[in-house]
């Protein structure tokens, strides 16, 4: 779960370096995509985005545009220094690479062969899937002490109440609400129940204060 290969697109539209900017832009428009890997003899040699194509050709309405679209070639515009991901990379690593380099996609390469492409919107889809936001549930925020067994303890309270957990995410540590207590972490659970009143009471009693929903 949460590997690049779980979220990447496998059907890839590619270009060869000697195709024209006009062809490339038309492809982006028709297939509604923004990134096209460039292949030479099956090997990945670059990547070109619709933004690169637009910024290197005269604007719409410029008389020079039609000619330029025919003359400028993909190899003139593409980024040659390509950062690729491996299919087995964790998705957070791919997300971090895209964030740090400020790029919108990574080609996925295995044994020198292009096998897929992963974009920021694939990462967003994975996030929605991860937090279970496409299944009915209530979202609960709970503070737990940064100590062994805390997550199991809080999760166990849901189990005791017969409430299924749809997803769980735990964040970094923070200062405790009460000075003198251990540092704490916030856990966000999505749970399959419409009625959180009872379980909120049990969690509070067990020392896992519920930050949301508010108490009646």
């Amino acid at each position: 779960m949460l590997l690049v290969k779980d979220s990447m697109t496998r059907e890839i539209v590619t270009l060869s370096p000697d195709e024209t900017a006009g062809t490339a832009l038309a492809l982006c428009r028709e297939r509604r995509i923004r990134h096209l890997p460039v292949l030479e003899e099956g090997r990945l040699i670059g990547i070109v985005s619709d933004r690169d194509l637009r910024s290197s050709t005269p604007a719409l309405g410029d008389p020079a545009r039609a000619k330029a679209l025919q003359e400028i070639l993909v190899e003139d515009v593409m980024a040659g220094d390509v950062v690729a991901a491996l299919p087995d990379d964790p998705i957070e690593q791919a997300a971090n690479t895209m964030r740090e380099r400020r790029i919108g996609c990574l080609p996925v390469v295995e044994d020198d062969e292009l096998v897929g492409i992963i974009t920021t919107s694939d990462v967003m889809d994975a996030l929605v899937y991860l937090v279970g936001a496409n299944e009915p549930g209530s979202r609960m925020e709970i503070a737990v002490p940064d100590r062994p067994g805390s997550l199991a303890g809080a999760a166990g309270v849901f189990g005791m109440c017969g409430i299924n957990i749809v997803s769980a995410a735990m964040g970094p540590t923070r200062e405790p609400a009460d000075a003198g207590k251990p540092r704490e972490r916030i856990v966000v659970f999505r749970v399959d129940t419409i009625d959180t009143a009872e379980v909120v009471g049990y969690l509070d009693e067990a020392g896992y204060p519920v930050l949301w929903p508010p108490k009646p």
């Binding site: 009915p136 549930g137 209530s138 979202r139 419409i194 929903p213």
Partner: peptide, 8 residues
């Protein structure tokens, strides 16, 4: 639905 059931 940010917090309340069903979340959608």
């Amino acid at each position: 639905g940010r917090y309340l059931f069903p979340g959608t």
